[in-house]
Amino acid sequence: MSFLDARSQYRRAEEGNLPELSDPHQIVSVTLRELHKSLAVLMAAQSDRQRYPAPHITKGLTAVYVLQSSLDFEKGGEIADNLFRVYEFARLQLIAAFQRDKGAQLGAAHGYIGEILSAWQSMPTKD
């Protein structure tokens, strides 16, 4: 999947609320932020013993798909493998929330994605 395909897919899920992006670094950054935000909303619902908001489950799953499919395992090696595992953990927790599992580990997923987001935002971009 190209970054343009990923951007288009995420835009459809977000219903056009994403800014126009062409830089792959920015696309990943926005996708990570949106995943982090959706996990936070789901965590809040979990702690308040409320129903999980379905739009945030959908957005989260779409973001995970975009992030996983944008990984380059040949160039990324072990880092790509580890990122895939973290994204897969987040995906499984989102699925647990979709299944209304009160034991979904959304806090852990939120924390892991937050660490990746922080590291991603601190990386210099190529000009």
Rank of each mutant, 00 (worst) to 15 (best):
R7N: 01
F98A: 14
R12C: 05
A90S: 13
A80S: 15
Q68P: 08
E15F: 12
R11Q: 14
S2R: 10
P55A: 06
K59R: 15
E78R: 14
E15L: 14
V64C: 12
L61A: 04
K59I: 05
V66S: 07
L42C: 01
L4A: 12
L117K: 06
Q105V: 04
L94H: 00
S118N: 07
M123D: 05
L32K: 01
R49K: 14
H110V: 03
Y65P: 01
L18D: 10
D48Q: 10
T31G: 00
D23F: 04
Y65N: 13
I57M: 09
K102H: 10
E88Q: 15
R100E: 12
L106N: 09
P124T: 09
H56T: 02
L42A: 06
E14Y: 03
D127A: 11
Q121K: 11
Q46P: 03
E88D: 15
H25I: 03
A40P: 04
K75Y: 02
R49N: 13
E15H: 14
D23L: 02
Q93I: 02
A63R: 05
I57C: 07
T125N: 09
S29P: 02
K37V: 05
A90T: 01
Q26Y: 03
Y87G: 03
A54R: 13
L117W: 00
V41H: 12
L35W: 00
G16P: 11
S8W: 07
A45D: 07
S8V: 03
A108R: 14
A119W: 02
Q105D: 15
K102P: 07
G76C: 09
N82D: 12
R85W: 06
L4F: 05
R33W: 04
V41Q: 13
R7I: 04
E78Q: 15
S2D: 14
K37D: 00
